[in-house]
Computed example of a mutant assay.
Amino acid sequence: MKNDALYAALIAFFLNIAMSPFVIPLLQKFKFGQNVRSDGPNSHLKKSGTPTMGGVIILGSMVLTSLLFSINNKELHTILFVTIGFGLIGFLDDYIKIVKRRSLGLTARQKIIAQLVVTGIFAYALKVYLGLDTSIILPFSEGRELDLGYLFWPFLVIAVLGVVNAVNLTDGLDGLASGVTVLVATYFAAIAWAMHSNVLPIAAAAVGSLLGFLLFNSYPAKVFMGDTGSLALGGFVIATAFVMKMPLFILIVGIIYVIENISVILQVAYFKKTKKRLFKMAPIHHHFELSGWPETKVVTVFSIVTAIMCLIGLVAL
């Protein structure tokens, strides 16, 4: 199994860098370019037209690689379903944005219904297909588990929707979501390796795919992942965490996702109450941009924070 991890990472990496030179020109040819929000930072206007929907490359390389290791691997099947399910929702969202030439795709109602459907099937898979109970591992407790009982199911819904959309919010700078998530995926791959978990091949495939994608997505980005990629990665992260019974560890290793999400919630709540902005712009990576930080510095600092928290996450298990 440990050799499988190396093979999965390498295969996904080379698949990604092999697909990208073909897919990116196709996205340009069909004018699948990014529509930059008019209320975003002015520095981002120059990114308008950069090919988006690059998440199909991430998904393609992850799926193809995972299928090589999918025989009798129910954990991999479950995580792959959630990853593809949320990726498809993101694909529809991106496609509508491009066809209608607007910065918003699916309506909020359509998104939440689709996400709840995927989450519901995921909950069923955890209970029936994998046969997992309703307990989760507590951080810093030497592996002690807490049985949530019936509270597990509302907790799962909140956690899945929260993480998936938090990763989506994180995807706002060149290489930010992919850079942070490759570290989170590496963390889960390391834990899966130590535990001899069946999660290992798909976690390793995610690492390899994201490393390949970063060659084209880091500043200045030649392609954006779009909601296709960010929602798929959010699905991968939270599905992996639940299959390994480690959803609370997202609060540690996924601290950037948490901060990005909270910054938006605080901004909206504060503005409704005072008609003033708490941050210069939310999500918070834009606040740092408007405070004078170069885009590359924001990405670097957020990645360093994630790396440190992943090390803390190793100690917390």
Score class of each variant (00 low, 15 high):
Gly226Trp: 08
Phe224Ile: 01
Ala177Pro: 02
Ile255Thr: 10
His286Arg: 11
Ser263Asn: 03
Leu251His: 00
Asn165Pro: 02
Thr181Asn: 14
Met195Val: 03
Lys276Cys: 03
Phe213Met: 14
Val237Phe: 15
Gly179His: 12
Leu248Gly: 04
Leu176Gly: 06
Ile284Thr: 07
Val182Arg: 00
Lys276Pro: 12
Val180Asp: 05
Ala189Trp: 15
Phe216Thr: 00
Ala203Glu: 10
Gly229Ser: 01
Leu248Trp: 14
Ile262Val: 14
Gly226Arg: 10
Ala205Gln: 05
His286Met: 13
Ile265His: 10
Leu215Ala: 11
Phe249Lys: 11
Gly208Leu: 09
Val160Phe: 10
Gly162Trp: 08
Asp174Phe: 04
Phe236Ile: 03
Gly254Tyr: 06
Glu260Ser: 08
Leu214Arg: 07
Asn198Arg: 13
Ala177Leu: 01
Leu173Gly: 04
Gln267His: 10
Ala232Val: 01
Pro220Cys: 13
Phe271Ala: 08
Ser291Gln: 11
Lys276Gln: 15
Val268Ser: 04
Ile158Glu: 05
Tyr270Pro: 12
Leu211Ala: 11
Asp227Met: 04
Gly234His: 15
Leu231Ser: 04
Leu176Arg: 11
Val184Arg: 10
Ala177Trp: 01
Ala185Met: 03
Arg277Val: 09
Ala221Asp: 02
Lys276His: 12
Val264His: 03
His287Trp: 08
Gly179Asn: 11
Gly208Lys: 02
Val207Ala: 05
Asn198Tyr: 11
Ile265Cys: 01
Phe188Thr: 06
Ala282Phe: 11
His286Ser: 08
Arg277Gln: 13
Thr186Arg: 01
Met244Trp: 12
Ile255Val: 15
Ile158Leu: 15
Ser209Glu: 14
Leu290Tyr: 02
Phe216Trp: 15
Ile238Phe: 12
Trp193Arg: 00
Asp227Cys: 04
Gly172Ile: 02
Arg277Asn: 13
Ala159Gly: 06
Met244Gly: 08
Tyr187His: 09
Thr228Cys: 07
Gly179Trp: 04
Leu210Lys: 10
